[in-house]
Design a protein around this nucleic acid. Structure first.
Lengths: 214, 214
DNA sequence: AAATAACCGGGGACCGTCTCCCCGTTTAGC
DNA sequence: GCTAAACGGGGAGACGGTCCCCGGTTATTT
């Protein structure tokens, strides 16, 4: 009974408080990233989490590891939102719309700079979280398109980038109560997404592939 | 004949190359801010401008002075765009639309973080540039609203924030060829701005006052 | 064209900030 | 209650940005 359940040998299950601390660090880091950007000092994150800085460095060897963990956790939460919206059987466009507003609540926009900056795009954890959310959004859009309520000249990349941009917080420490504005602008954007299309878009539909290449 | 034209006494007109250098510095700073954010080292800006760092410090005593100059110059250029669109006598919504796309070209989104961050909002130059552009956009929107093509539940703040957000570059050094996407998303947003409104917006119309208060 | 004063450029010292290790103390788990 | 793992905070070291100094250069004046 040295190792629990499916834990590998040699790693004798971390202590309970260690896991709790790790969670608190991730949560604090997410908040700090949203408020102050991806360059916040590690010591600040530790202080916010209520742990010593050594604990932080023990859990995450470098900044990238911490950022990745935060990004993955947010992407996963967004995926859960998408699954929830897919589970409900109401209007497909309405489901997409609610997903967009829910994603804003998760502050997905704050993490975009991190993903784009120096960052190993090919880390398995990140790839997994990303593909999951992409697939789900794809289905959401496909359904809405199928009911004829979503214009047909857009793709997943268009939606994801727009959400990210419209929900990105300003670097200034304050400005977190701009949520009232954010949902207005998301709604306006969603109105532009409805079929029939009210204008011809420049360029071609943006897929996730396109984004990765840029 | 010691001082030229309307120059005050005691300031015997700066040398021609000094003025040229100042212009080059502002242009370089604008580019650097867009590409790398507002925190670029002064020495980098100087190098890009092709001048020594001392020349930069001579012209701008501190970072804020440089940032303000850049912001004002961009706001003024956007104002010129607005005036041009107002001068043309075609469809009012089309004029607004073209103004939005033109503003994106001026990279107005890149400067928003600067305005929001530590920054003296009350500097006369800044106030002047800001009021000018606000007034012009107000007129543009009023005209479009008058023709019944623009939905009536939005205000200047809604449009300005959305433009800024949708055109904000990602911090990563690359990603400057995302322009192809940006104009798509601006167009989608503009489609959402058209009358008749396709949904009810949360909250209330955002004025410039609202933004200043937040 | 020569004189002169303003201007320029780059090197380097100073300084604040972030990172990351060390070690005495605490705490979970058996 | 014992043991080993985890914790916390202080501080050394390194990195990067700011800003000054001064020898050389260039625009302007007569």
């Amino acid at each position: 009974m040295e190792t629990a359940t499916v834990a590998q040998r040699k790693v004798p299950r971390p202590r309970a408080d260690a896991l709790r601390n790790r969670e608190r660090i991730v949560a604090a880091a997410r908040d700090m990233f949203v408020e102050c950007g991806a360059e916040v000092p590690f010591d600040e994150v530790a202080r916010r989490a209520g742990v010593g800085n050594a604990t932080l460095y023990r859990n995450f060897p470098d900044r990238e590891a911490l950022q990745r963990e935060v990004v993955c956790s947010v992407l996963d939460r967004v995926s859960e939102q998408a699954e929830q919206m897919l589970a409900e059987t109401g209007d497909a466009f309405e489901a997409l719309s609610r997903f967009v507003h829910a994603s804003a609540e998760e502050r997905i926009g704050a993490l975009c700079p991190m993903i784009s900056e120096t960052f190993d795009d090919n880390h398995p954890d990140l790839v997994a979280s990303r593909e999951r959310v992409e697939g789900l959004v794809e289905v959401l859009m496909e359904r809405a398109r199928g009911t004829g309520r979503l214009r047909t000249d857009i793709a997943v990349g268009d939606l994801m980038v727009a959400i990210s941009q419209l929900t990105r917080p300003l670097p200034g420490t304050a400005c977190l109560n701009m949520d009232r504005f954010v949902h207005r602008h998301l709604q306006l954007f969603l109105d532009g997404l409805r079929a029939p299309a009210r204008s011809e878009l420049p360029g071609t539909a943006v897929t996730m592939e396109d984004l990765r290449r840029a």
